[in-house]
Amino acid sequence: MNDIVLPVLWAVLGGAIRVGTPFLFVSLGECLTEQSGRINLGLEGVLVLSSMAAFGGAYLSGSPWIGVMAAMLAGALLAGVHGVLCGLRRVNDIAMGIAVMMLGTGLAFYLGKPLIQPQAPTLAPIMLGSTSSSAQLQAALSINPLFPLGVLIALALAWLLANTRWGLIVRMVGDSADAARAQGLSVNRVRTLATMAGGAIAGLGGASLSLFYPGSWNELLSSGQGLIAIALVIFARWRPLACLWASLLFGGAGALGPALQSVGINGAYYLFNAVPYALTLLILVLACTPYRRLQGAPSELSVQR
């Protein structure tokens, strides 16, 4: 029994971090954006564009960390387009999100054409398990260097939103635009800045994809991971720390299928892919009631009204 359970556990643990890291960044980015009362469905475009930018930046400069910067910049800029335009009257944020998704993926595919073939310098893993004698443990603990950064951002975001003036402003704008205006705040400016910051954080997820895992650029790199973030944020009830656990859970679910197949338990690989969606949906059905909004949801959020 143990020769199956333990290896699968290690593989899933390592896989949860490997697969879950991009989820962590996009969900934190989306969490921040939604806390300010706006949804950004364009995060899929942000993720794709930033992973292309990261790869291109690293390829041209020879330094993966310059690639990481390029990813944050590209993410912030594209999210900025969403942020600014959604501030205009009558502009629907859901539709604009989908348009931004198309623009971002289009630009990334177009500009990324010459980047499909080359190799770029990638981020070196942090070897936490180098003292361990088990090769599996070593592999599971060679950590994406962006993952600790993601954990830090989750902690910082949780603290900032709960305890600082800045966090209060974001939450106030997200909960009642009128109250915020009464305080003399510019609702649009706060939301645009929150959306851009969210885009920059999500951009780190793109960098993680193209510079660490799997560590190359191609057009199917994301395949909807940016959209899953929307579900993740709900799953995490708009709490940054819960985004961390939710990302690891979704990542682990993604790693479970291959891990089981690697020990000879086969079949139904599509069903494994469906598990995270089914789980989120189930939680929504159980947690929602028609009489009040979902607990933790910013009340200005268009998808919660």
Binding site: I94, G224, L227, I228, I230, A231, I234, A268, Y270, L271, N273, A274, Y277, A278, T280, L281, L284, V285, C288, T289, P290, Y291, R292, R293, L294, V303, Q304
Partner: peptide
């Protein structure tokens, strides 16, 4: 789900689409 459980239709639609796409692949290839 929206009317009786208060589940937002944008989110549930997105999730359901992913769900049935995977079920579809499972069924037509299985």
């Amino acid at each position: 789900m929206r009317q009786w459980r208060g589940v937002n239709e944008t989110i549930s639609g997105l999730l359901l689409a992913y769900l049935v796409i995977n079920l579809f692949k499972h069924v037509v290839e299985g």
